[in-house]
Amino acid sequence: MYQAVLAHLEHSLWNDTRNARTLAWMVTGLVLSQRPSLPAWLPHIHSRATFAQSTERRVRRWLENPAIHPVSIYGPLVTRALRDWGEHTLVLALDTSMLFEKFCLIRVSVLFRGRAVPLVSHVLEHSSAQVSTAHLLPVLAEVKGLLDFLGIRQVRLLADRGFCDKELMGWLQICGWHDRIRIKSSLILAAPDGQRLCKIREIRLAPRETRCFQNITLTGRHFGPVHVALARPLDGPEQWQVVSDEPTSVETFAEYGERFQIEEGFLDEKSGLFGVEDSKLRDADSLERLILVLSVATLLLVSEGI
């Protein structure tokens, strides 16, 4: 397996052979051991080192090396994959996940054939999964840079209600991206002239009822025009509330529902497949490089499956 992984990496990282080989070791060890532990990788790493400790030190130095920038390594790999996957509207999901209750992983994933493939990931020391737009925009700017490089313009971003922020939606509007974002019940809907219509929580729907509001604004800064879809499912008390930059319909909920694939991806990494929280790393930069290894493994496995 190592040779197949190395060949794939060297094709994209042709000017960085040493990094490609070290990364191939780690990806191979991760996939075959299904554990994010350096000692667990060693039986699957075939190097010319005489002692296993030498190989472990090299891998550890790689994870701790401040000169290793994940986006510069992962960018060529994921852009090559996006070229191979053909032309279509690119559906992205934005979400966060906590690691060790101390670090927040911010991620934008590509949703493709039922899988959430990491596109850009960033780890910061932060005690909550709720992060400010100031933290989100640099991550989204990296995404935009990759997509602009590929000439991809048709983009739809999906996000949960924690990301319902007018500054963020304004940034997406400037980029020309579409969005489907869940919104909070406390938001006020207003007519284009600013006249208050109602708070979302004041709208009571019967089970299976759907109501759409087109060309309205969200207060307090009267952001809009936007379009809102509300629905109450038959089997639950919680109301679905989604804002979109495009006219809404029942189909809006199916489009937003694709977002849950990124949560399944987090589950794979944390407790399902790789168990990232079993690692001994406890600083944001080293964790971000470990997340790079997991992202490369996911990308290669999905590409191989395709």
Rank of each mutant, 00 (worst) to 15 (best):
V5A: 14
D95K: 04
I216Y: 03
S128D: 01
P70Q: 02
V120W: 13
L147S: 15
R196P: 03
K144A: 09
S72Y: 10
H126A: 08
T22E: 01
C212D: 06
H88L: 05
L234Q: 07
G29I: 05
E167C: 07
R221M: 05
D283C: 14
V5C: 15
I306H: 14
T17W: 14
W240D: 01
R58W: 05
F260T: 00
H122W: 14
G194P: 04
I306R: 09
I200S: 04
H69D: 12
S121A: 15
P247C: 14
D245R: 06
E277C: 01
A191V: 04
A4E: 12
D285V: 01
L140W: 13
I68R: 09
A7L: 07
R211Y: 01
D268I: 05
G265R: 01
I188L: 14
G224T: 02
M26Q: 10
E87N: 13
Y74C: 02
F163R: 08
H126P: 06
L94T: 01
A141S: 15
F266R: 10
Q261G: 06
G305W: 14
R289S: 11
G86W: 04
P70Y: 07
D278Q: 10
A284G: 07
S186V: 01
D193L: 02
D245P: 04
E288R: 07
F112G: 07
I174N: 02
R48C: 06
D193C: 02
L90M: 12
L119G: 08
G75D: 10
G305A: 15
P36G: 02
E277K: 08
F163D: 02
Q53E: 07
I200G: 04
R60L: 03
V117P: 03
M98H: 00
K184S: 11
I306Y: 07
A40S: 09
V5E: 11
D148R: 15
I203K: 05
L294I: 01
L137M: 09
E142N: 11
P247K: 12
N215T: 12
N15P: 11
M26C: 09
P225N: 01
D160Y: 06
Q173D: 15
G257I: 00
F274S: 03
S286Y: 05
H122V: 04
R153N: 05
Q214I: 03
G176W: 12
S54M: 00
H46Y: 08
P233S: 10
L294V: 00
G236E: 12
P66S: 02
K144H: 09
R208K: 15
P138D: 09
W240G: 00
F223L: 06
E258Y: 07
V250F: 05
V59S: 00
N15M: 08
L38T: 07
I183V: 10
R107D: 00
A229W: 06
